[in-house]
Measured scan of single mutants.
Amino acid sequence: HNLTITQGKLFFHYNPKLCLSEIHKMEEVSGTKGRQERNDIALKTNGDQASCENELLKFSYIRTSFDKILLRWEPYWPPDFRDLLGFMLFYKEAPYQNVTEFDGQDACGSNSWTVVDIDPPLRSNDPKSQNHPGWLMRGLKPWTQYAIFVKTLVTFSDERRTYGAKSDIIYVQTDATNPSVPLDPISVSNSSSQIILKWKPPSDPNGNITHYLVFWERQAEDSELFELDYCLKGLKLPSRTWSPPFESEDSQKHNQSEYEDSAGECCSCPKTDSQILKELEESSFRKTFEDYLHNVVFVPRKTSSGTGAEDPRPSRKRRSLGDVGNVTVAVPTVAAFPNTSSTSVPTSPEEHRPFEKVVNKESLVISGLRHFTGYRIELQACNQDTPEERCSVAAYVSARTMPEAKADDIVGPVTHEIFENNVVHLMWQEPKEPNGLIVLYEVSYRRYGDEELHLCVSRKHFALERGCRLRGLSPGNYSVRIRATSLAGNGSWTEPTYFYVTDYLDVPSNIA
Rank of each mutant, 00 (worst) to 15 (best):
S203P: 03
P205A: 08
P205F: 12
P205T: 03
N206M: 11
G207K: 02
G207A: 08
G207D: 03
N208S: 11
T210H: 15
H211A: 10
Y212R: 00
L213F: 14
F215A: 13
W216Q: 11
W216D: 00
W216V: 10
R218N: 07
R218T: 13
D222W: 13
E224M: 15
E224A: 11
L225T: 13
F226Q: 05
F226K: 02
F226P: 08
E227K: 07
E227C: 14
Y230C: 15
C231H: 01
L232R: 13
G234Q: 07
L235G: 06
K236C: 03
P238L: 09
P238H: 03
S239I: 07
R240F: 13
W242H: 15
W242M: 05
S243A: 11
S243C: 06
S243R: 07
S243V: 11
P244K: 07
P244H: 15
P245N: 05
F246G: 08
E247H: 03
E247A: 12
E249M: 04
E249Q: 13
E249H: 09
D250A: 10
S251Q: 13
S251D: 13
Q252N: 02
Q252D: 04
Q252H: 07
H254P: 05
S257Q: 15
S257R: 08
E258A: 14
E258N: 08
E258W: 15
Y259S: 09
Y259L: 03
E260S: 08
D261V: 15
D261L: 08
S262H: 12
G264F: 02
G264L: 14
G264S: 04
C266G: 11
C266I: 14
C266W: 09
S268K: 14
C269M: 03
K271L: 09
T272W: 08
T272K: 05
D273R: 11
Q275D: 12
I276L: 04
K278W: 10
K278R: 06
E279K: 03
E281I: 13
E281F: 13
E282K: 13
S284A: 14
S284M: 07
F285M: 14
R286G: 03
T288L: 12
F289Y: 05
E290R: 10
E290V: 10
D291A: 06
D291I: 14
Y292R: 07
Y292S: 11
Y292P: 09
Y292T: 09
N295K: 11
V297I: 08
V297R: 05
V297A: 06
F298K: 01
F298P: 07
V299R: 12
P300W: 15
P300R: 14
R301T: 14
R301Q: 04
K302N: 13
K302H: 13
T303I: 02
T303A: 09
S305K: 08
S305T: 15
G306T: 10
G306K: 10
T307K: 04
G308H: 07
G308M: 15
E310V: 03
P312F: 04
R313A: 14
S315G: 11
S315F: 11
R316H: 14
R319F: 14
R319W: 14
S320F: 12
S320K: 14
L321Q: 15
L321C: 04
L321K: 10
G322W: 13
G322P: 09
G322R: 11
G322S: 13
G322M: 13
D323M: 15
D323E: 13
D323I: 13
G325I: 09
G325H: 13
N326A: 06
V327K: 02
V329F: 02
V329R: 06
A330H: 10
A330V: 14
V331K: 04
V331H: 14
V331S: 06
V331T: 10
P332V: 05
P332M: 11
V334K: 13
V334I: 05
V334W: 12
V334T: 13
V334S: 10
A336M: 15
F337I: 09
F337Y: 09
P338D: 07
N339Y: 08
N339V: 11
T340I: 14
S341T: 05
S341G: 08
S342L: 14
S342K: 10
S344I: 06
V345F: 05
V345A: 07
T347F: 08
T347A: 10
P349K: 10
E350T: 13
E351D: 10
H352R: 10
R353M: 14
P354T: 09
P354W: 08
P354Y: 14
P354M: 14
P354E: 07
F355S: 11
F355I: 11
F355E: 10
E356P: 14
E356L: 06
E356C: 13
E356F: 07
V359F: 09
N360W: 15
N360H: 14
N360C: 14
N360K: 15
E362Y: 05
E362V: 12
E362K: 10
V365S: 08
I366S: 00
S367I: 09
S367R: 08
G368L: 07
L369M: 13
R370M: 04
H371Y: 12
H371P: 10
G374S: 07
G374W: 03
R376E: 10
I377V: 11
I377M: 06
E378T: 13
E378K: 09
Q380M: 14
C382L: 00
Q384T: 08
Q384P: 04
D385V: 10
T386Y: 03
P387Q: 13
E388R: 14
E389Y: 11
E389M: 14
R390C: 10
V393T: 03
A394K: 15
A394P: 08
A394V: 14
A395Y: 06
A395L: 09
Y396L: 09
Y396E: 10
V397H: 15
A399D: 15
R400D: 04
R400M: 06
T401Q: 00
T401I: 05
T401A: 03
T401E: 00
T401S: 04
M402R: 07
M402F: 07
P403Q: 05
P403V: 04
P403G: 09
E404G: 12
A405E: 13
A405D: 12
A407W: 10
A407L: 12
D408R: 00
D408H: 02
I410V: 11
I410N: 02
G412L: 08
V414D: 00
V414K: 01
V414L: 09
T415M: 15
T415N: 04
H416V: 07
E417M: 08
I418S: 11
I418R: 08
F419L: 10
F419K: 11
E420R: 13
E420G: 07
N422V: 10
V423M: 12
V424S: 01
H425F: 08
H425V: 15
L426S: 03
L426I: 15
M427D: 03
M427A: 11
M427E: 15
P431N: 04
K432E: 14
K432A: 13
E433T: 08
E433L: 05
P434M: 04
P434C: 08
N435D: 01
L437D: 13
L437T: 00
I438L: 11
V439K: 15
V439E: 04
L440D: 07
L440A: 11
Y441P: 00
E442C: 08
V443H: 00
S444T: 14
S444G: 12
Y445K: 01
Y445A: 14
R446A: 08
R447A: 14
Y448L: 12
G449L: 09
D450T: 10
E452L: 09
L453T: 13
H454I: 14
H454G: 02
H454F: 01
L455Y: 10
C456P: 02
C456W: 01
K460H: 08
K460S: 10
H461W: 14
H461Y: 14
H461C: 09
A463C: 08
A463T: 13
L464G: 09
L464D: 10
E465T: 10
E465D: 11
R466S: 13
R466P: 06
R466M: 09
G467L: 04
C468H: 14
C468F: 07
C468W: 07
R469N: 06
R471M: 07
R471Q: 08
G472C: 08
G472N: 12
G472A: 13
L473S: 01
S474K: 05
S474I: 11
S474A: 09
S474G: 11
P475Q: 12
G476I: 00
N477S: 05
N477Y: 13
N477M: 08
N477G: 09
Y478P: 01
Y478K: 01
S479N: 02
S479F: 06
V480F: 06
R481T: 01
R481D: 00
I482M: 03
I482V: 06
A484L: 02
A484R: 00
A484G: 13
T485F: 09
T485N: 03
S486C: 01
G489D: 07
G489V: 11
G489R: 05
N490L: 14
G491H: 02
S492R: 04
W493R: 02
W493Y: 06
T494A: 11
P496G: 15
T497K: 07
Y498E: 13
Y498L: 03
F499T: 01
Y500V: 12
V501T: 04
V501G: 00
V501Q: 03
T502F: 06
D503Y: 08
D503V: 12
Y504N: 13
Y504A: 06
L505A: 10
L505S: 08
V507R: 15
P508S: 05
S509V: 09
A512V: 14
